[in-house]
Design a protein around this nucleic acid. Structure first.
Lengths: 335, 335
DNA sequence: GCCTGTTATGTAAGCGCTTACATCGCCGTT
DNA sequence: AACGGCGATGTAAGCGCTTACATAACAGGC
């Protein structure tokens, strides 16, 4: 049982004041070696473990940062989290994650729940109505946005240049002499998806090609479904740009099933460069958004903001823009 | 900056005592409607957000559970986390995750850091020397272990029957008339990997086949490397059981590159059933451990333990054993 | 119109910790 | 031998919140 051994218990056991006990345990230098030993021994014997919340309250420092994502699983988010995790342990920080499940309200709720338990917040909220966020989120906590921010919220952020990426994807397909290029879009309310769609449309406009946009929701199932639509129509496209890799993957599956040859009959390219693209057959071309790095750099940025004190944080609203890089693999390489 | 609006500020602004403010905000019923309104309005105006740590300290309840995993990314862990997340939000709990990076000490450190910030712990620590854990971990916090526990620690846990699964894998390969079945093992110090290896060996013994074990570390690179070894030897195996799916995937890649036909030349089977197995070509046979469910059920179990109070928790040390299910896909299906 | 029962409100005592400040020895000076 | 200074230790005041308990206010029953 020995439930809840407190510092006080340790202090008593060691026959010193609670202050000395605290100092000894936290490794401050103003304690006699003898006292430190006694305290540490008592702590060990009693299996004392400091109480995080109490410490946080007293120091108003948690060494924890909150991460709010639309979801916390799947290859994409997993990579982001990995980036964050790597950077976090480098800075000695812990992370409190929460999936907000595609809803601004939920994101705000999650953020509120984190208040007082974290030193800063890393938020990804690619929702069209994210304007609300900027007003409701910053309870004067250092904050870094990952990915698209709605409105003119001038929060520090790391955003991917989705538009350019999409443009590049389309240009690449055109270079592979695709003329009928279809697009599987992301969720309508998703800002990143919107930008990718714009890039796609402009990319076609450049060459006077006519667009075909199929709805999607970033899942492989959506990619698969989109392909069924394509297969049913009279003329198949000869190029396909999916708004993310999962959908490209689903599409690939569907096409392979139908005996369509990739990339000869149809060239495919996705977006994000999640790990699985490499294992698909054929491996899928994509735009590397550096998902891992986004996570890592966001956290680094945040930790700087935290160090310098939240007050002036948002002043320096440094928004880093990540330009995605074209990665050509077999799915779109025509010889 | 309006930094740190406290309940006290709200109370003053609303012209009531801090107690009433607290009650109003927490929706207790013993406040006049009028007071509640005034408080809520003040809170809104001041952008009051309750301080998590303070609340936790006062109530000794955090509504957060800590999750300690060897890693927090990759398909396997991502799935686990998803299971946990789903169950957690169903129970209104938040999760504090931490990767322990393959080391008992780190795991213990992480757990200590979580003390006082969580109501319970979900730990996966498949380390051979995990005996230490049982002694050091339970600072009388409800605790559920996921996966192998070292020693006789009778902690509540959810474990996969790795041995049976491996046995089944080998039997399956034998049924596909494989006679030379190789195994790519997991990390030596990993308990789950050890059990899978045992299952493999026993599975071969049943049929008097001779084993070949290649070292691995659960990464796709290891699978790929193992295959290079196989390709270099005089006679290739005709069956391959990888200790997890990622290695099976890497192996598949390497074999495909070398022009070896799967499953005709060599049948392959993995373990875990992570999502990507379905997308590989050929899709990879595996043993479905129900990764998602492990996460979900662990959390459910934990939350029960929390409800009934930590004290008697470990008494009921209910260990649920999950029997993996054989999933046959193209990589091992011979006609 | 007094007493009791009921309910709304306030007061204050913690929750476990850190830390500014006050004490207290003990040293070397003069 | 008295004194200032310094470093080790203790005391106590919070950190922001909840909640037991005290108080106040108000209703109804006689």
């Amino acid at each position: 049982m020995a439930a809840g051994v407190t510092l006080n218990d340790v202090a008593k056991a060691a026959g010193v004041s609670i202050a000395s006990a605290s100092r000894a345990i936290n490794g401050l230098d103003n304690v006699t070696e003898e006292v430190r030993e006694r305290v540490l021994e008592a702590a060990g014997k009693l299996k004392y473990v400091p109480h995080g919340a109490a410490r946080a309250l007293a120091m108003s420092r948690t060494n924890t940062i909150g991460v709010i994502l639309p979801d916390i699983y799947g290859e994409f988010f997993s990579e982001i989290i990995r980036g964050i995790d790597v950077a976090a342990r480098a800075s000695g920080l812990h992370i409190l994650v929460s999936g907000s499940h595609g809803d601004v309200k939920e994101a705000v709720k999650a953020a509120r729940a984190m208040a007082g338990r974290v030193d800063g917040l890393l938020v990804m909220a690619p929702y069209a109505d994210a304007d609300d966020l900027s007003g409701k989120l910053p309870f004067n906590l250092p904050l870094v946005m990952m990915g698209g921010v709605g409105g003119q919220a001038d929060l520090p952020s790391l955003v991917v240049d989705n538009y350019s990426g999409a443009l590049e994807a389309v240009r690449h397909l055109r270079e592979q002499s695709c003329r009928r290029i279809a697009h599987i879009a992301g969720p309508e309310s998703n800002l990143e998806a919107q930008d990718r769609l714009r890039g796609y449309l402009d990319g076609l406009k450049e060459a006077d090609l006519s667009p075909q946009v199929l709805p999607g929701d970033f899942t492989d199932a959506a990619g698969y479904a989109a392909v069924q639509t394509l297969l049913a129509q009279e003329q198949m496209p000869d190029g396909l740009f999916a708004a993310n890799d999962m959908m490209a993957l689903g599409a690939t599956l569907g096409l392979r099933e139908a005996g369509v040859s990739i990339p000869d009959d149809i060239a495919i390219i996705g977006f994000d460069d999640i790990p699985v693209t490499r294992y698909a057959s054929p491996p899928i071309s994509t735009l590397r958004a550096g998902v891992f790095d986004i996570g890592r750099r966001s956290l680094e940025l945040l930790s700087v903001l935290i160090e310098r004190g939240s007050a002036e944080a948002s002043t320096s609203a440094a928004s880093l823009i990540v330009r995605p890089e074209l990665v050509v693999r077999a799915s779109s390489r025509r010889r």
